[in-house]
Design a protein around this nucleic acid. Structure first.
Lengths: 347, 347
DNA sequence: TTGTAGGCGTTATCAT
DNA sequence: ATGATAACGCCTACAA
């Protein structure tokens, strides 16, 4: 906020009025070519940058949108955030970031901060946002979109995400196609977790339609951690000695299960296929990579941004809804998403 | 930006002037207890939220800082960003995010966007920012800090980061302490990469002071990718048959090297220690985890934020500089950093 | 095509 | 302790 050169400065230096300069900036077609060039010259020479606050005050729009993200550390989101930011930037918007804790009330508090600061729209990442959040959003008539949510979807709120059941179905069909008949699952806790439930449902459905059986005790729930994943995998491996594939509901679980397979001597690539859901990290950190589902996190962010932008332009575009997922088969390095992915420079 | 209830609205409803309401908000001690309560009541009842743009215009500060981050996808940064955001939020600031591509000029362009929007300070994550960036920052007298930079450090710019040479030294000393004598390194390309150079330097120094030799051909450079890491590791394993440890400059390289060890039958835990530098992801995704260096990414973000906040308050605190790194030994799950780390819910 | 003037919602300076 | 009032920098009818 250390502006010094203002519209007025430019106007004086160019020998015109402030309105003319303003027009050069926002509606150049309304101003004479000569004067425009002159003014543009002065603007460049003086390095003038518009004052956002003043502009926002006059225009009644800030040109920024807020993102509320429970845990940015979960890198699943960082791709999406990057896509959000870049897409918004291209359309002339800035992204305000907010990463509340999971303390009750923290979320509304953060959201209030964003609103006070002046955002034209909001992206809510992740599930389980508190009712007050939506109340506030509604009362302000603020356009918003839920990204990567699941409960929100069934409540009819505008969403951009994916179909978890379909994702797992993809995995299951792939495995079945490879000839696997005895498949187990290491799932996340399904209680209070629609995502996890959907994934179990997906597997069950796929196997049923292939005429295969998924015994109750072949689905083991575990907390989302490596240790729990390893324990759970050991349990199913013990229960079902003829198992040839384990589907895992999540990266952590898959990593743990992989360790269990290695430890128990069940060589993974040959005998037991461990399959996780997030290609984002899993495929990068197991090498050679496991077969995973590619979640289009980048595209989700991009589509969410586009939806918001349309809303901010007064259009009422339909929310993206569920985006298609695809399989990333072990060993293949093909990537469907547009973002740069491998070969990070940092480290 | 869909405000409706303003200071004026509140003032009228409370039967006072706008100045009084304003005071209640920013300097409550100056207003009579009775009126204050009454006004606060109205504020709450009407759900009034201050208009950031108007406030910024009058106060001449926006109450926000910008972050320029080359690649958020590199999750190394996401922890830091989260720390930045939360620390700033606590101090009443919002964080504006910008993730430029590596196209020339894109960075200044993004920065200009942030400035236009009105930020009071800027955090530059990563190295290799273009000169124009600093020129712009200087000309606006905008407080800024370089985070996780290395070239910037030697140029005397305010930084928050860590000492890469020291980090690798830590690893080396650990390995040497375990009895390893023949150690090799898979390094990132050192050309145009001060970080990579520092890490090689660190290993060389540590071995020299332990009276050990690091043959020239025991350091192999590779691009930051799994494949390259695996190839490089195979090369050193072949060259030096008595090798008992490989130090890797980066997650990707370590993963690749790990695969090489497994493939060539050199069982990793017993014979060859593969050690990477980023605890952030590597230790999470190799299970059981490798020995890694713990980079205090959260703390770096926090310290960077504190520095900026101090600067914005007119104080001139010293920049954090290099923060201490620590070792995370294989199998130990002890975590030194304050942020929540494992058990992601997403997936 | 360009200039004039009023207003956007808050803060801060002065009076009262 | 409170209330007018003039900025803050920009936008936009409206007038010229």
């Amino acid at each position: 906020m250390s502006q010094s050169v203002s519209l007025e400065t430019v106007a004086r230096a160019a020998g015109v009025s402030t309105s003319t300069v303003s027009r050069v900036l926002s509606r150049p077609e309304l101003v004479n070519a000569h004067t425009r060039e002159r003014v543009e010259g002065v603007i460049a020479r003086l390095g003038y940058l518009p004052h956002g606050a003043a502009r926002a005050l006059a225009r009644k729009r800030s040109g920024s949108v807020g993102a509320v993200i429970p845990r940015l550390g979960v890198s699943l989101f960082s791709n999406t955030v990057q896509a959000l930011q870049q897409t918004l930037h291209t359309a002339g918007y800035e992204l305000l970031l907010s990463t509340p804790e999971w303390r009750p009330g923290d979320e509304v508090h953060h959201l209030r901060g964003l609103v006070t600061h002046g955002v034209d729209g909001v992206a809510l990442l992740g599930s389980e946002h508190s009712p007050e959040v939506y109340a506030l959003l509604e009362s302000l008539h603020l356009p918003f979109i839920c990204v990567w949510a699941s409960d929100e979807k069934r409540r009819g709120l505008p969403c951009a995400g994916l179909d978890n059941a379909a994702a797992i179905r993809l995995v299951a069909e792939h495995l079945i196609g490879l000839g696997h008949r005895r498949i187990a699952m290491v799932s996340g806790r399904t209680r209070h977790n629609e995502r996890a439930r959907a994934r179990v449902r997906g597997l069950r459905a796929a196997m049923r339609s292939a005429g295969l059986d998924l015994p109750r005790d072949a689905v083991v729930e575990a907390d989302y951690s490596y240790e729990a994943g390893e324990r759970a995998a050991r349990i199913v491996l013990e229960r079902h000695s003829k198992l040839t594939a384990i589907v895992c509901g999540n990266d952590y679980l898959a990593i743990g299960a992989l360790a269990a397979c290695r430890a128990t001597g069940r060589a993974v690539p040959q005998d037991v296929s461990v399959t996780g859901l997030n290609d984002g990290e899993l495929a990068r950190y197991t090498w050679p990579p496991l077969t995973t589902v590619h979640l289009p996190m980048w595209e989700i962010g991009e589509r969410a941004a586009r939806y918001l932008i349309a809303r901010l332009d007064g259009l009422d575009a339909p929310p993206p809804g569920d985006l298609p997922v695809s399989l990333r088969v072990r060993g293949s390095t093909a990537v469907a998403s547009p973002q740069p992915r491998r070969g990070g420079r940092a480290g």
